[in-house]
Design a protein around this nucleic acid. Structure first.
Lengths: 204, 204
DNA sequence: TCTTTTGCAGAATATTATTCTGTTTTGTTT
DNA sequence: AAACAAAACAGAATAATATTCTGCAAAAGA
């Protein structure tokens, strides 16, 4: 796999070429101007297409937003699962989760930026149920996977509810700051620090 | 101070009554429908006022959003500084920061919810410079305050850039989850866990 | 080749944000 | 208190934007 492409991966083939183009330009606009300030006309202009085509493919603005959002979410998720498959202890799992997250954000900064800013709109929009379902599914799956390990010799903070936040919270917060330019060091530089810190934080 | 009110505090007096009312109803609409889906008409209807009045006070939709956003941000900030004033060590400071954050979110859930979802729009909009400035100011101030302590006997993770993320990341992540209903336990319940965990996480 | 489906274009329409003009209320000065 | 100025407010008019609709073209299947 030379250089994987999230859009090519999700909407493959020649016939979906314009669809991908629209999404790519929409992603650019959303990130550059913000979700609300992005107009259909602006997207149309960057694709050299028609409103008809856009509405044919996505129904409405919310449809474009959601298509992008779920494409990014699924890709990030897939990346996590690949990494996590190799973990053999809770400690390794924590390192995988954090490493995978940081890697993905650094590899796909534009998608990551979009993911952060699009979550709220999508959570309110017509696809809110789909988002909720996925959250629940993912939560359960990851929970089971982590609980499978925790019979080790270390004592872990209770309850389980707060575990995810302890693991991913710092990395997430830092990535946001990095993407917005508030901090300069690449998240990957601090891979080790975030992983070790998280591991320390959740031991009694 | 019996029951402080963010709006009353920021826009005091009889003449600002409608202004406060508009903001209150706008807050409700933004949280209920989402920022983009909230129309001026919807806000107007809930206030029983006119578009003229709304535009007189805020200029445009972005103006309403920003007024709400900075009101919330400043209140949260003020709360933090009050708490932090009593800290006498780095450990105490960390506990103050986290405690203050959790308290504020639980005391003002609607405002907190809004703060999360409005950050991106404001960061893109016409007040982006003002937001950047405040971020820089606050960052410096807090940095100096923390560095004033760190000559203690404990070794702290480097560099400073990642420190804030380690401290506030987990709490922030959990509060978001709580406000969106993904987890049930009140953030205040886990006050101790978040503070202790954060403290462990940033020690060598 | 014929037929059906899908992709696309652009004018027409509907919705929403914003402006503008006039009126009323409030505060200030004399 | 009267006169003036400034701020608050109302609502019609306008502008910007999202969405629909109708028709045509390309592609796929029979």
């Amino acid at each position: 796999m030379n250089k994987y492409n999230i859009l090519e991966n999700r909407f493959p083939g020649r016939r979906a070429a314009l669809k991908r183009e629209i999404l790519e330009q929409a992603l650019y606009c959303f990130n550059e101007l913000g979700v609300e300030a992005t107009t259909i006309d602006a997207i149309k202009a960057r694709c050299d297409t028609s409103v008809g085509a856009i509405y044919h493919h996505f129904g409405n603005k919310e449809g474009i937003l959601s298509a992008l959002f779920f494409a990014a979410l699924d890709d990030q998720r897939q990346h996590l699962e690949q990494e996590l498959a190799g973990a053999n202890s809770l400690r390794e799992a924590v390192f995988c989760i954090i490493g995978s997250y940081l890697d993905w954000v650094v590899a796909n900064p534009e998608w990551a930026r979009f993911l952060y800013q699009a979550r709220s709109p999508v959570a309110k929009g017509p696809f809110q149920e789909e988002l909720k379902d996925r959250n629940i599914q993912n939560y359960r799956k990851l929970k089971d996977q982590l609980l499978g390990f925790s019979k080790g010799d270390v004592k872990i903070v209770q309850p389980f509810e707060i575990l995810f936040s302890l693991i991913i919270g710092p990395s997430e917060n830092y990535c946001r700051a990095w993407l917005s330019g508030r901090v300069k060091g690449s998240p990957q530089e601090y891979r080790g620090e975030f992983a070790e810190s998280a591991w320390r934080s959740l031991q009694w």
